[in-house]
């Protein structure tokens, strides 16, 4: 069992397998994305309060989900890398950081665009947006630390610890920001999670969520492959690979 995992986790094996998976994942991502956009932009009904502007939710909400989900994946992968010293887990963790930061940024931007017609300004210190903003800083910290450490393995291990520290803190930060928000502004801006959502709105939301997960899978595999090649550039299998393509 352990042997199987070790083999799967070997960089060479990973490179071969992931190369086969990526086209399929990419195709599935495109299919879900198109279906989700079609459902979200054309099929889902217009909201009686917000008109059509709510439709950005189909990007914003899945992006916000992804921002948290990827941080969890990053921390778990980092933890596995630290405990069992599996190189591939370290690579997965650090490859996730950039994608996660991008999704967080997307959630912030779309949240801001969505908020403009609702609140009349681009930025409101809404609890969820504030949490996203702090999450973005946590991601940027991970990326900055990784770039600052010269030795790649040391860098990956250091960022794994930081991701684990962050994961312990995220619920605390989230809770404290909610508390702060209710103290200072009253429970005014909970419009993001409508209490009962129309079924025709739920479907595109779920489709987009799946599409985003697949997108993450594709991008993280692509990034990880590049990282694997860079790290293993002195090994015989990478040299053979390069010779093959020349």
């Amino acid at each position: 069992m352990l042997r199987f995992f070790h083999q799967l986790a070997s960089p060479k094996h990973f490179y071969r397998i992931s190369g086969k998976w990526i086209p399929w994942l990419g195709a599935a991502c495109l299919a879900f994305m198109l279906a989700g956009l079609y459902q979200g932009l054309l099929v889902a009904p217009t909201d009686y309060q917000q008109g059509d502007s709510y439709r950005i939710m189909f990007v914003h909400v899945p992006a916000a989900w992804m921002s948290l989900f990827i941080y969890m994946v990053m921390a778990i992968a980092g933890g596995i890398g630290l405990v069992w010293r599996i190189k591939l887990a370290e690579i997965m963790a650090i490859s996730s950081a950039h994608v996660g930061a991008s999704f967080t940024f997307l959630a912030l931007i779309t949240g801001s665009i969505w908020g403009k017609p609702m609140w009349g300004s681009w930025w409101v210190w809404d609890a969820r947006l504030t949490s996203e903003l702090i999450l973005l800083f946590l991601y940027l910290g991970v990326i900055a630390l990784y770039n600052a450490v010269e030795d790649r393995r040391t860098a990956a291990r250091a960022t794994s610890i930081l991701a684990l520290v962050g994961v312990v803190n995220i619920p605390i930060i989230h809770y404290s920001v909610e508390w702060w928000n209710t103290l200072h502004q009253g429970p005014t801006v909970t419009k993001f999670d409508a209490p009962s959502i129309d079924f025709r709105m739920l479907i595109p939301l779920l489709l987009m969520a799946i599409a985003f997960k697949l997108f993450y899978a594709v991008v993280v595999l692509l990034r990880a492959r590049v990282e694997v090649l860079q790290r293993e550039r002195n090994t015989s299998w990478v040299k053979a690979l390069v010779a093959e393509h020349e």
């Binding site: 946590l138 910290g141 520290v165 962050g166 930060i173 809770y175 404290s176 920001v177």
Partner: peptide, 10 residues
Amino acid sequence: SLLVLPLYVP
């Protein structure tokens, strides 16, 4: 500061 300040928020 980038690593630590976000963790100081709570």
